[in-house]
Design a protein around this nucleic acid. Structure first.
Lengths: 205, 205
DNA sequence: CGTCGAATTGATGTCATTCAACTACAGTGG
DNA sequence: CCACTGTAGTTGAATGACATCAATTCGACG
């Protein structure tokens, strides 16, 4: 876990603010540059169960995941976050509750800390940002609903196919057993599903 | 589908604003009274796939549910909404997209229409309301996450037990096959789960 | 190399689905 | 008042999908 205040100034969050959120360059820089940045090595834990989650993480480079443990100690992946994604335990942040989940680096990862204070500040500075943040929230809800619909009824194969469709870039970067965990099936089952698909001449990529 | 502008003025949303949201009586009345109210009979459809959902429904009396159909035409219950609950297709409202889901009355139901215009207006009139609305949104997210966790791994029995715990009052009002649909299992399976539980001396009530 | 975790494969078990028959009950119309 | 009908719920037997357990292979890394 390496602090990287200045060893390199990643401008990716700045770019994100300009290109995706739609801020002007001066606005984006003014908001982005003062933020805290950290680098984590593969396997590092950014948030663990019991911690109160104080901010979102924006991924500038690398890959994170969040997951939780059920009563029997099995992991369930909640979300993956590659470049330009946010990841956070929203319930923990909003309600100031201890987190139920963990956040962990799947690859060496550079992140920006986005605290609630920043959110408020940014929403004042730029109305555009406030609206964008709201949009993120609603996208999150929509995506969760989609996942619930899949879990309510779709077979292992359909879940996997829909995963490929939604996150094709993650296929090569995420270990298979984590994908299985995300889909709610065992690694063995996923292996067999893939075999079946290959047999039916299915080519990803 | 009966319009009930004035045949009886239900004051339940007003009470909700006072008791749950925390507004003063004059504030609550000022906001609540001008709203559109409707009554629906059991079986009526309030929103159907393809419609753009323009507002939330607040249930003053009765019971609603939302559900969607998968490719094979099977229903999946998304949410139930008894008295003092909101129900809405948030994605449809926010993104102005045609709805993927249906909303239907399980019992004869009186609802209040809560449009986005109202939300904005109310947030101006009362800061308390703005904050409360935000809280609703985050509660929604938290609840969806809880459901995902259940669907990722819990057996039919565990899902049912957790349903009982969360919504004990719905047990007697919702037909069993709808609960099964909400849990992502078949009505037959739920029937057997209940039999098992009864056999183990389990009493809901 | 040797080690360790990931992935594959096979044998077997378990849980939920499917399909079908049957009961219970509410609503409808004769 | 009594069939007739349709829907909900239950039950049984057969099937199917995925899990579990164990053995093996593969590949990355020290």
């Amino acid at each position: 876990m390496i602090k990287s205040e200045n060893h390199k100034i990643p401008k990716d969050f700045t770019n994100y603010l300009m290109e995706t959120v739609g801020l002007s360059e001066p606005e984006a820089q003014k908001l982005s540059l003062p933020l805290t940045r950290m680098s984590y090595e593969k396997g590092n834990v950014l948030l663990k169960k019991g911690d109160v989650c104080k901010h979102s993480f924006f991924v500038e480079k690398g890959l994170l995941r969040s997951y939780m443990l059920d009563e029997s100690g099995k992991e369930h992946v909640i979300q993956f976050a590659p470049e330009n994604w946010f990841i956070v335990d929203r319930s923990s942040v909003y309600f100031n509750d201890p987190s139920e989940s963990y956040i962990e680096a799947i690859e060496d990862t550079d992140v920006v800390f986005i605290g609630e204070d920043f959110m408020c500040h940014a929403a004042e500075v730029s109305q555009t940002f406030g609206r964008y943040n709201d949009k993120l929230l609603h996208n999150h809800i929509r995506q969760m609903q989609k996942r619930i619909n899949l879990l309510l009824g779709a077979t292992a194969e359909k879940r996997y196919l829909s995963f490929i469709e939604m996150y094709p870039d993650l296929l090569l970067r995420v270990p298979q057993w984590m994908i299985a965990s995300y889909l709610g099936i065992t690694p063995e089952s996923l292996s067999r599903v893939r075999k079946e698909l290959a047999h039916k001449n299915f080519k990803p990529s």
